[in-house]
């Protein structure tokens, strides 16, 4: 039986820069940063301090796991900004929006009311977009004619 999500991959363009972005700008904690043998794979994971069971692994597309052509296509898609990496949750969207923005995180959308909560959008330093959402307590709010 599947018990839950443990690790999810976020493809990035540079692990050093991604490590700095995810820990210093987003405030996630570093879980692992180790290299498997001489010149081997660098296993880099981060996660939210309040959620120890879920890691994001920050990986650069490339050989030997991916052929050079595929890796190059992936990198272009990441840089082009078409890939979304997920939804991150907060309990203080307006405060955290300001905090992250002041740290230099590039937002595409300031917090806006949605039926399921209040949502902002930002990009990581590679180009992946994340939804940043404070969940609405209780039921979906369907009273308004929501614009999306």
């Amino acid at each position: 039986m599947i018990k839950g999500l443990a690790i999810s991959t976020v493809w990035v363009l540079d692990q050093d820069r991604a490590k700095e972005f995810y820990t210093e700008k987003l405030g996630l904690e570093l879980r692992t940063d180790m290299t498997m043998g001489e010149g081997g794979m660098r296993w880099l994971t981060v996660g939210a301090p309040d959620q120890p069971g879920i890691d994001l692994t920050l990986m650069v597309p490339g050989p030997p796991a991916m052929d050079p052509e595929s890796a190059e296509m992936m990198k272009k898609l990441i840089a082009k900004g078409v890939l979304g990496a997920g939804v991150l949750r907060t309990d203080d969207i307006h405060g955290d929006y300001k905090k992250l923005k002041d740290r230099g995180v590039e937002f595409l959308q300031e917090p806006q009311e949605r039926p399921y909560g209040t949502e902002a959008l930002f990009r990581d330093d590679s180009g992946n977009w994340f939804s940043f959402t404070q969940h609405r307590e209780g039921e979906l709010d369907l009273e308004k004619d929501w614009s999306c």
């Binding site: 081997g40 296993w43 796991a65 050079p68």
Partner: peptide, 17 residues
């Protein structure tokens, strides 16, 4: 936890972009 990822990464020799 990540043995599958390690296997994927150690399958081939090193190539460069």
């Amino acid at each position: 936890a990540f043995s599958c990822a390690v296997r994927a990464f150690s399958r081939a020799g090193s190539l460069s972009v």
